[in-house]
Design a protein around this nucleic acid. Structure first.
Lengths: 227, 227
DNA sequence: GGTATTGTTTGATTTCGATCAACTCCAAAA
DNA sequence: TTTTGGAGTTGATCGAAATCAAACAATACC
């Protein structure tokens, strides 16, 4: 069940700090925010399906969203997980207006929705909007290319190590953080079966990684870099 | 060895028909073309390396270019092959000005080079230029996501079948075409070792695919779709 | 034309991760 | 408290593709 609402103050703030809108002069950003609607989704809700006409693209306000391809035989492959402040499906503005992938909430989620037609119109008038959109597209493109390279070069434990390192500070040599979502979601993001993720965590014990529920502790960050 | 030259008439035409510039009103496209330089590369030339400062992005005029990640231990993973009319590395305009990947020619190649600073300036004045760049970014983003999904969902023979189908007409049920580049390059593009590509072609014999050098013949396109 | 070099195929072996099945753990509901 | 269901782990097996090695084909070079 989706509920469509107006933005509250808190949501406006998140949105203005998002990767997309934070690139813009604040007057421009505020103007765009005025045309945004908020959609509130329950866990496991479909947001759109591949093949559907695309009327919106989205920025996540709270929660996490899973973008995936559904194959003929019903299997799903994740191609991206998007969290607060991240924008997804902006590509539909330029690829014929049809969604190429499915999107689903991983949990309860609130989304900011941009109407494709309106934003297109804004972008054709103000170059700054195009530039902000390009920054978002570039970011997503880099992440996708990074993902291909990571899949092709690294084993499961190495990919998990890379993910952990992205959540560690640069300077310190030990760290601890909490996974922001379920392990099964992380497994999908890394292109692994849940069993393989579990085994990868076990393999990383020898590199000083210990896992308690969603809490990850890293004893020696440098050791992990060379795993 | 790189040679930098001015554009000749033929090259101008290819460029104006490229995915990037063909989105623009022709007056605008011509203005941009005036600021383009041409670089002529030999086979196996590096174009740029990951970590380098990025002064240009590129459209291929002739030949094929390989974009890849180089891992710590010296292995390479292809993340994209770009041919005539295709633009690559436009992302550097928005990600801090550093190349995240390596690019190398697969054979003798001529490239159109866009100066990042100049195009940024143009884009900040004319919204149409930003829109054309977004179209190019979207295209590359979609391809990258498609690649992740294909890697994760399909076996080697299925990925090869998909590639073949992309080079077949929609309507007919048999076809024949010539690979535009070496099989080893195709293997890399599909994330396979050359041996695996060879074996995949063998496996596709049973689906009516026969290979003679670079010539691929498909007896029953529909059969291939369900492989 | 012959020879070196590079690209491709084929065979044997190994490794990684998927899959299937059983079990543990935890949390929410009755 | 007991029960139920979902998430995660562990074990055993299987299959796909990498790797290593060698033969073979095609091409460029002298």
């Amino acid at each position: 069940m989706i509920k469509v609402l107006k933005l509250n103050v808190r949501e406006k703030e998140i949105l203005l700090r998002s990767y997309f809108l934070s690139e813009l002069p604040s007057a421009t950003a505020v103007k765009i925010v005025d045309h945004v609607t908020v959609a509130s989704h329950e866990a496991r809700d479909p947001i759109f399906k591949q093949g559907e006409k695309a009327n919106y693209f989205y920025t996540v306000l709270t929660g996490f969203v899973r973008l995936f391809r559904l194959s003929k035989d019903g299997r799903e492959a994740d191609i991206g997980i998007y969290g607060p402040g991240e924008t997804f499906a902006e590509g539909v503005m330029f690829n014929g207006g049809t969604h190429r992938f499915c999107a689903q909430t991983a949990e309860a989620v609130t989304l900011a929705r941009y109407e494709v037609d309106k934003i297109k119109q804004f972008a054709s008038q103000d170059p700054a909007i195009g530039i902000a959109l390009m920054a978002s597209l570039s970011r997503n493109l880099d992440q996708a290319l990074e993902c291909v390279a990571d899949d092709r070069l690294h084993t499961a434990p190495q990919r998990v190590a890379n993910f952990i390192l992205q959540n560690c500070p640069e300077n310190a040599n030990s760290a601890r953080f909490r996974l922001p979502f379920q392990k099964s979601l992380l497994a999908g993001k890394l292109g692994l079966a849940p069993e393989a993720l579990s085994r990868a965590f076990s393999a990383l014990k020898s590199a000083g990684v210990s896992v308690h529920g969603r809490i990850i502790e890293i004893g020696d960050i440098n050791a992990l870099r060379n795993f």
